[in-house]
Amino acid sequence: MDNGASSYRRFLDGDESAMDEIMRELFFPLVFFVNRYLNDLPAAEDVAMDAMTELFVHKRRYHFKVSLKTYVFMLGKSRALNYLKHRKALRETELTEAEALAEESELERRALDSERKRAVNAALARLPEDQRMAVHLIYFEELSYEEAARVMRKDRKQVDNLLYRAKKSLRAMLGEEGEELL
């Protein structure tokens, strides 16, 4: 599986339908990932859309040296951090708490394909941000340690440590059941 790289090649060759394939494969996971930074679903959708737009407008920036998914997540992360920097100026849509919960659970359903992942996701909210991101990228998005390290701008060893601490915390929170989930 090439995480959309072959689709992107077809897009570069002029096949517009390849855009739709990439969207289908990466958009919701990207929104879900960005929302971990923003905790604001409409904003996360917008930021994810921006990242995808950048991918298709600047056609030669992606150099195929990392998987397309890694590259898109890197774009998403940088856009999310940028958004956080200017959050006050950019905030447009306010959802009620109930709407927000409903939206998030819908997104979770679309982005996470198994009950097991959803159960872990519920516990993730209580972890520090770095650990949460490491678990998200490796267990949910199934990136390799190296790819996750690239997205997080850390080295492999740091990602290893984060995961170790995240697992320990999750075990403490979820008990034996949690150990099985991971």
Binding site: D20, M49, T53, F56
Partner: peptide, 10 residues
């Protein structure tokens, strides 16, 4: 809908 939005933005 998101895909249409993406095409429009691109």
């Amino acid at each position: 809908e998101y895909t249409e939005e993406l095409h429009r933005r691109v």
